[in-house]
Amino acid sequence: MRSEPTASFWGTLLYILAGPLLWAVQFTLIYAGHTAACLPAVPETLAVPLVAVPTVAAALAAVAFILRQEAFARALGAPEPPRAAALHAIARIAVLLALVAVIWSGFALALVDSCLAGR
């Protein structure tokens, strides 16, 4: 317990919250982007890239996190695997959960018109 380096709190926090934070950023971007696209002065078609780009980017980032989890842990100063196995499991599952939310919000674009009044 004494010999290992002390884990960084903020790094660890960022590490286990990586997934939900990714979702939060994507959600903010698509909501704001879509609102901007529905302003009178802006062409409605702009909604497509404004929603699609953050969605794809967030999804790719989530996949990258899962594939390179150890590297992320090290970079952020979280306790490195194999120490604290539970922490790493938590971070991984949280990213998967966020991925579902990212995809669900994103694919609405394929089914629903952007700026018509919602019914």
């Binding site: 609405a108 089914l111 629903v112 019914r119």
Partner: peptide
Amino acid sequence: PIVVLTFLLVYGFLVMQAGATRMS
């Protein structure tokens, strides 16, 4: 939950889209 909710969500989106189209 993911399977069931995906189904409901898609169905809901389709009804929404029908509604939006009717409005226009």
